[in-house]
């Protein structure tokens, strides 16, 4: 069964390129230039399997955010990825708070984008088929990493991580004690970002763990080198 991807992008060349690429991979891609077009279509034909949304849409400066909010109201599990030229911290935080699964800047390669799309779809599938996928679980102390659902629990409580954050934690926890440089973490997370953004991701991940366990201190900084997972 072919998966349907909704691409809401007001830049026609980018939309065309992504459409061509995903179609070549067997996806059905519906391209919308405006929020109203997308909502209208979804109203008639139902929600897609995954939505890739640009933040700024035509004359709506934050039309993508509004669309994300409206889609999340309709479905809690619909994978949503923001693809935008805006790379400010504020925009990223805003997008993720609205329930997006990831926030990407437009200079990401198609390969990295496809990896994300596939991963998110796989997670949806895994969530729908929960119970049969328990064998692909990585346990690190109180942490369990489900590679299929791309979910992480700490003290058996789910840690709400974005896809990028999941991949970073996974990369760190896979080999405890081994220092991962920022570049390695970027590669693992399929992103091309600056060092500071990785630092920000790490801060955000720590905060999410500490929200569950105030004593959480397993992600250690190796000054000048990167980060490592500490078993203790």
């Amino acid at each position: 069964m072919q998966r349907i991807i909704a691409l809401v992008e007001d830049e026609p060349t980018i939309a065309a390129n992504y459409q061509a690429s995903f179609q070549r991979l067997g996806f059905i891609v519906n391209v919308f230039a405006t929020r109203s077009q997308a909502l209208s279509y979804f109203g008639e034909r139902g929600l897609p399997d995954l939505a890739i949304i640009d933040v700024g849409l035509a004359d709506e400066y934050e039309g993508g955010f509004d669309l994300c909010r409206q889609l999340r109201e309709q479905s809690a599990t619909l994978p949503i990825i923001f693809l935008t030229a805006r790379d400010s911290e504020l925009d990223e935080v805003s997008g993720l708070r609205l329930g997006a699964d990831d926030y990407l800047t437009k200079d990401i390669s198609l390969t990295q984008m496809v990896a994300r799309v596939k991963a998110l779809l796989r997670r949806v599938d895994a969530l729908e088929q929960r119970g049969n996928q328990d064998n692909d679980v990585l346990t690190r102390g109180e942490m369990e990493i489900n590679n299929l659902t791309m979910t992480i629990t700490w003290h058996q409580q789910a840690v709400e991580l974005t896809l990028t954050e999941f991949w970073i934690v996974h990369a760190l926890a896979k080999y405890p004690g081994q220092v991962k440089s920022r570049q390695q973490l970027m590669d693992a997370a399929n992103v091309v970002q600056d060092d500071n953004t990785i630092t920000t991701h790490i801060k955000r991940i720590r905060r999410k763990f500490k929200h569950i366990d105030a004593d959480f201190d397993h992600i250690r900084t190796a000054y000048g080198m990167g980060y490592r997972w500490s078993a203790q």
Binding site: E11, I14, S21, A85, R86, D87, T105, K106, L110
Partner: peptide, 19 residues
Amino acid sequence: HELRTPLAVIRSSLDNLSH
């Protein structure tokens, strides 16, 4: 901010072209 969009156009075009 301004360069990301044209870069995305080029990059996605190249990706498609390479395939």
